[in-house]
Nucleic acid binder design. Structure first.
Lengths: 146, 146
DNA sequence: CAGTATTCGTTGCATACGCAACGAGGTCAA
DNA sequence: TTGACCTCGTTGCGTATGCAACGAATACTG
């Protein structure tokens, strides 16, 4: 007969737990804006970064908000098509692109950002004293090249 | 001119942080087995659950390892095609399916599980005292219907 | 300078994805 | 028993994904 396998519990496995928890929180947020605004996660990240940083290129998005460049490129195109974002070539280095919020995009973020801030607040209340432990642990994990 | 937007930092936003951290850990694990064994995340979850639980149905996978049923169904088909898993109808309720590890699948898990356990151990060492805080926070978040 | 190497964003391709719809099987109640 | 209802797994469909390859623009090197 076959050897016994070591016992291993997915429910305690950190890559699994973090991925599931991340999806859980993202779904909670999406419930608040997806139906109303039709924004995907990639598009959301781009919009937030534009609201915070002004003009950015695709490679900035890749580096700053963890979006693979083709994903960033396509999500940006969708945002341009939807009228939320403008895209112009960068005159100083014509390989680059300058993405920024359109007036409509700015208005959209005027609604979305408070919603997101409220959600973050709710999460922090749910976590209570666990918040700092969570943040410290995440910092620790992200600092490491695993 | 346009109203200023509230400032909002994606880097502190928990849904983002957890999703990125989860992807970071999953990528670290995938580096260890993807090239060698060609297993996707969905397939990995199914294999682990089979190693732990013996025979399961698609709906069990949906409930226990957070895989949407069509995703579970297709990943299971791939595992059957690869020879790691067997699938037979459940005679008691012929709507159900009985998935279980094949001998080859069992042998595969004999290699994969120790690798995963070692990775988990590495993560726990990296986290050190932060481990318990992280687990408590994740439990708290998952207990809530956000 | 010329020639090579590198960077940036887009796109082609094969695959994976989520969702809704479906057929087959099972349950329940009258 | 029969008909309405529910559950399970699969599949069709449109879209999203990751990766490699590409053309254009820029940087580097001798």
């Amino acid at each position: 007969m076959s050897k016994d396998l070591p016992d291993f519990h997915l429910a305690r496995f950190l890559p699994y737990r973090l991925t599931v928890a991340g999806a859980h929180l993202s779904a909670g947020l999406a419930r608040r804006y997806k139906a109303e605004f039709g924004i995907s996660v990639a598009e959301w990240r781009i919009l937030v970064h534009l609201a915070d940083a002004g003009e950015v290129s695709i490679r900035d998005l890749e580096a700053r908000v963890h979006l693979e460049k083709s994903k960033a490129s396509r999500a940006a195109s969708r945002l341009v098509a939807a009228g939320h974002v403008t895209k112009v070539p960068n005159a100083d280095d014509r390989r680059l692109v300058r993405l920024s919020l359109s007036d409509g995009g700015r208005a959209l973020m005027g609604e979305l950002l408070p919603m997101a801030a409220a959600y973050q607040e709710k999460l922090e209340i749910v976590l209570g004293p666990h918040l700092h432990g969570l943040e410290a642990a995440l910092d620790r994990l992200m600092a490491e090249d695993l």
